[in-house]
Amino acid sequence: MTEYLEIAAAISLFIGGFFTLVGSIGLLKVDTPMSRLHAPTKASTLGVGALLLGSMLAAFARGEGSLHQVLILAFLFVTAPITANFIAKVHLHGRTSQKSPPPPPTGGQWATYDTPQDETRKPVEGN
């Protein structure tokens, strides 16, 4: 039983290391800012997920089972979309991509471009 757990832990460590590396390769290799966002936010999340799984399995193989890596895993999976969304909004706001997005099909405009008309919240100029 212990050997199987160790083999499973080793396999997850391999997978995790591979995906973490791929995420950073994508960060370096891909050319446009918006596409660059794709590589690390997800490949790294699955990479760290597999590494945490490996750490959990290794702990079980040593006989001191622990589940608290699940907490880090859940936290990362909940926060990864939020950080990705914020960074994408930064790109949208700075108009860094060559192609600007099409307008919404239901009319109006995207929320990032929507400047508040309220006097107390003046839109930020420049950047």
Binding site: F14, G16, G17, F18, T20, L21, G23, S24
Partner: peptide
């Protein structure tokens, strides 16, 4: 392997 790849990343 994992140390090397994560360090390179």
């Amino acid at each position: 392997f994992a140390f090397v790849t994560v360090g390179a990343a």
